Amino acid sequence: MLTERLAVACLRVFLVLLFALLVVFQTLSIPGQFEHMARTNPEGAAQRWPLTILGVLLVLCAQVVVVATWKLLTLVSQDRIFTDAALRWVDAIVWAIGACWLLVSGFFTWVVLRADDPGGPMLFLLVTLGVTVVGLLMVVMRALLRKATALRTDLDSVI
């Protein structure tokens, strides 16, 4: 039990740090990077705003996952992880990963159609496959949580 509490406490610290870093990326780094790219490469300036919006939305997806993970940790510490409340937060994670997958897949398609060398498409293929695997893994984890919740409910009714 002590190990679980320590792990939850450490994870909370890192989630706060991750969220803070994501806010910095969302508000300063991503817009600043694409503004700099538009200034140094005027022929690509038209891509500044679409890429900025894409970057900000991807970070927003990550922020949703961080917040939902925080909420799940709260449920774990309250021994309420096998409840419908937990399923709602896992659903939020699945939807955020699904939105991320749509954004990354769309960008992957855009990169493939414009690419003149295989480096960019290969990189975004790797990212797209990674997001796909994480999304499908979360769907499986959600199914396991549903089954465990049903078993816990059955066990509670017997006791």
Rank of each mutant, 00 (worst) to 15 (best):
V8P: 05
V8F: 06
L11Q: 09
R12V: 12
A20D: 08
F25G: 11
T27V: 13
T27M: 10
L28H: 10
G32S: 11
N41T: 12
A46H: 12
P50L: 01
L54S: 00
L58S: 09
L60K: 03
C61P: 02
C61W: 02
C61Y: 10
W70Q: 10
T74K: 14
V76T: 14
S77W: 12
S77A: 14
R80S: 12
I81H: 05
F82W: 07
A85M: 10
L87G: 12
R88V: 13
W89P: 01
W89H: 15
V90C: 11
D91M: 13
I93E: 07
V94T: 14
W95S: 13
I97S: 04
I97G: 06
A99V: 15
V104S: 09
S105F: 12
G106L: 13
G106R: 00
F107C: 08
F107V: 09
F108H: 09
F108N: 05
V111C: 02
V112N: 03
V112Q: 01
A115Y: 10
A115N: 03
D116L: 06
P121D: 11
L125D: 10
L125P: 01
L126I: 11
L126D: 05
L129A: 09
V131A: 14
V131D: 02
T132L: 14
T132F: 14
L137D: 03
V140Q: 08
V140N: 05
M141P: 04
A143G: 11
A143M: 11
L144Y: 06
L144W: 03
K147L: 04
T149G: 01
T149F: 03
T153N: 01
D154N: 08
S157P: 01
V158H: 06
V158L: 14
